[in-house]
Amino acid sequence: MKRILVGIKRVVDYNVRVRVKPDGSGVATEGAKMSINPFDEIALEEALRIKERGEAQEVVVVSIGTADAQAQLRTALAMGADRAILVQSESAVEPLDAARVLLKLIEREQPFAVLLGKQAIDDDNNQTGQMLAALWDRPQATFASRIELTGDVARVTREVDAGLETIEVDLPAVLTVDLRLNEPRYVKLPDIMKAKKKPLDTLTPADLGVSPRQRVRSTRYDAPAARQKGLVLKDVTELVAALKNRGLV
């Protein structure tokens, strides 16, 4: 079966302004609204569109995280994924171990493409897709803003600093997606009901033969140095004078 594997991460919703705990020991996320990482949602949307075009037959969505991530997997099923896998871990899984978990699932599921968000908006690591492609010894196309599938090749337009780069990758491959690839659909109520009947399997990293290690220890969390509010000027003349005073023009 032509299958796409999509990875999604449960993160604090992008509209929530997170803060450091008063003792600097972590991020205060209790009670915060949680969502699918926005880039992963775009990856899922793309996989669903590929399936709807008849270029794939099944979309399998996977998350690595706590049992709470079932909520985001159900949302993904409501969007249209066919089935879900939760790899449950109560402790954080670093990107290289997340890639190892995904590689084991690839061996089981034999997808022709793995779609991931380019980065999660909590850790902002931007690592897992590239690491997975390396461990799998398959190509990667990161920062995708356009994906065209032709036979066993994906032609991917990438948003790079210099502009738009197009590369061709042989499938199977890992594709990580950027903001402008698509706009994810809204979930409709009947789909939420239907999603409750779709399969959601739960595994652990150990079931897959992976033992996550903590190699990067987080020792302190700080608020960034805040910029001071400056002067509000009356008119252009004052602005130009202020710029001159500071030697900026």
Binding site: V18, R215, R217, S218, T219, Y221, D222, A223, P224
Partner: peptide, 8 residues
């Protein structure tokens, strides 16, 4: 929004 100190 947060600066993380890490130790490897």
């Amino acid at each position: 929004n947060i600066v993380l100190s890490v130790d490897v």
